[in-house]
Amino acid sequence: MHRRIVALLAGTAVALTACGGVQGGSAARDAAGFPTKPVELTVPSSAGGSSDLIGRAVARAVEKPLGTSVPVVNKPGANGAVGGKEVLGSSPDGHRLVMLFKSLMSITPLAVDDPDAIRFDQMTVVAPLTVEDYVLVVPAASPHRTVADLVGAGRLSYGTTGAGTGSQLAQALLFGAAKVDATDVPFDGGAPTITALLGSQVDAAVIQIAEAAPQVDAGALRPLAVFSEARIPFLKDVPTAKELGYDVVVDQRRFLAAPAGLAPEALATLQKAVATAQQDPRYTEFLEKNYISPWTDPADQVIPHLEAAKKGYADVIAASGITFKES
C-alpha cells in the first residue's frame, strides 16, 4: 500500500517535470524578458569593507532604473576569486552580476599561482564603477614621520590587505626599491589590517583612502605617502611616492561584470540602468564622502586598461628585481 502511494507520487513527479520548468534556484533558466526577477549582485568580499559599501551603494541606486530589487550577496574568499568564479561560471541571463576589482585581474596573477584564475574571456563587462587610491599609513604612536624615516629604520613588518592586492604590491615595490628588510603580513581585508595597525602589531600598512580617512581624521593613523599620479585633495600635504623618488603608482578600480555570453538586450538594459544610477545624487554624494572617484572610461576600455596595468606591474616588478610571487 505504501509502496503504491510512493509510486504514484513518483509518477506525478515525472509527469509534472515533463510539463513545467523549474523556477528559481541557483540555475534559473527563464530569460525571456529582462529582468524577470531580482538581479543579484555578488560582492566577492566580506560585508563592511569598501567593496561591499560601493556594491551596496550601486545596488541601491540601480534598483529604480532597473525596475527590480538588487540584493547584495557577500561571497568573500581569495581576494574575490571565489565569488567572481562562481558568478562568471553561472548562466549568463543577467540576473547575476559580480563586482570585480582591478587588483584581482591585474595584480593577483603576478602574486599567486592559480591555474584556474578568472580570465577576461569569461566575463562581459557591464560598467566601470570607481577608482580608489592607496595611502601608506603608520600608527600615531610610531616614531616615523616620513617615508625616509620608515625605510631607514632597518627591519620592519608591514600589513597588507591580502596576498595579491594593491596594498601588497605598492609596499613590495616601495620597500623593494628602498632595499629594506621588510616582511609582509597579509590580513583578510581592510578592517583587520587597520586593527593590527592601530595596535602597532605591524609597523606600517597600505590601505585605501576611504578606509583610512576616519582614522586619519581622528589622529589615530598618520599618512606618509599616497600612490596616485598626483596628490589627493583630501591629503594635500601628503607626498606621492613618485615625488619621493619611487616610481610606484597603484590604484584600485572596480567594475560590474556578468558571465560571458550575456544577451546584448540584457546588457543594454543593465548599462542604461547603471548609467542612470551613477547620476543619482545619493550615489555621487556617497562617493565624494568616501573619497572615491568615478571611473569614467567607456565599458569597452575596461579590459584593455586592466591588461595594460597587469603588463605594467609585471615590468616594474621585473625591473626592480624584487620577488613578488609568494616564495
Binding site: 505504501h2 502511494i5 510512493v6 507520487l9 513518483a10 506525478t12 513527479a13 509534472l16 517535470t17 523549474v22 523556477q23 534556484g25 541557483s26 540555475a27
Partner: peptide
C-alpha cells in the same frame, strides 16, 4: 534543483513517515 523542491519534499516526507 532538477525537478523543483515540491515533489522531492513530498516523497522524502512520505518515505520517512510511512
Amino acid at each position: 534543483e532538477r525537478i523543483g523542491f515540491e515533489i522531492p519534499t513530498a516523497l522524502l516526507l512520505m518515505l520517512w513517515l510511512t
